[in-house]
Nucleic acid binder design. Structure first.
Lengths: 174, 174
DNA sequence: AATGTCATGTAACTAGTTACATGATTTA
DNA sequence: TAAATCATGTAACTAGTTACATGACATT
């Protein structure tokens, strides 16, 4: 069963509460959520895909909300807890944050902590490799190349700080 | 003439020096550059598109490097200097950084400064809207939603800091 | 009655991915 | 000479975008 990020974003929203396709579109359009397209040409085909896979149901009449099924929740839980890799951290941080946002009720505290710890360690490792490269080659790089590279370093530093503070928050959660 | 980001990434690399398609692929594969796919199925069709448009030439024999043409440089300059929008800043910062990385020789210092100032001001505006929302709704948001939102705030804060310091660097450049 | 918003859909197009195929050149 | 690397390509598939079409319902 192959599922796209858009599919997961939709499932994640439905985890909160059932809603119509139009409702989903409006969330994509008006909030910072995921920066997915709100065009009907992407949302409705995705919903129908998910229906066919049995991950959502409902919405058979006009205006009736769509709900996530038990199978959908299972699939979602799998997606949320699958092992994250260095490459995810290096080029897909946004998706990891989306995952974290959806973890609320579906995932145990232990798994949340595991997720954040892996996220933190991989961020640390990647940041370290960037800094090592910067130290070795920085002076020889063209100015704009170097400055852009430093943007990356700053971004991952801030990401590392977030994982640390969030880990603390989750650990202290009662 | 419609051009994709991948096309621009390729043109940007060729701005540095002519290289083979394989060379381009290796850069995409081994460096942090742009996080574009290095698969032959994306690079070679893109190169052929660019050839057809007259933006690159060469590479007619196996192993011969491909170069950017004068028209290619013109197109690139247009891409680099087109007005950036709030939506670019909100969801496409990576592309803006890619642009900045390629500006080195093609764009005047004045235009670089204009770019960075716009980038900075839009980042400031977007960050402000995030913070306003956070202040108003933060307490009512589900924990994970709020923490994810705070990731966004941290990211844009770090981005703002980068634009400020980079603007200073470019202004002081002799 | 007209406008706006809620609501869903599809057809044509575009671009990227995966996977395969091919062959030249270099190096061990 | 075998293996690795350099080098280019294509076919089938997937998914997303744009743009259009439709109609119900609520408001003014």
């Amino acid at each position: 069963m192959k599922i796209t990020t858009l599919d997961c974003a939709i499932l994640g929203l439905l985890l909160g509460s059932p809603m119509t396709g139009y409702g989903i579109r409006m969330i994509f359009e008006t909030t910072a959520m995921g920066n997915y397209s709100s065009s009907p040409g992407s949302i409705y085909p995705a919903i129908n895909r998910l229906k066919k896979l049995g991950l959502v149901n409902g919405g058979n009449e006009r205006g009736k909300p769509i709900s996530i099924t038990a199978l959908g929740k299972k699939e979602m839980k799998h997606w949320l807890t699958e092992t994250i890799t260095l490459s995810d951290v290096a080029k897909n941080s946004k998706i990891l944050i989306l995952k974290f946002a959806f973890m609320d009720h579906l995932v145990s505290r232990k798994e949340k902590i595991r997720f954040l710890e892996t996220f933190m360690n991989l961020t640390k490792a990647y940041l370290h490799s960037l800094e090592t490269y910067h130290e070795a080659e920085g002076v020889d790089m063209p100015l704009h190349g170097r400055l852009s590279f430093e943007y990356g370093i700053a971004t991952f530093k801030s990401q590392l700080a977030w994982t640390k503070s969030t880990l603390k928050t989750i650990k202290n959660e009662n």
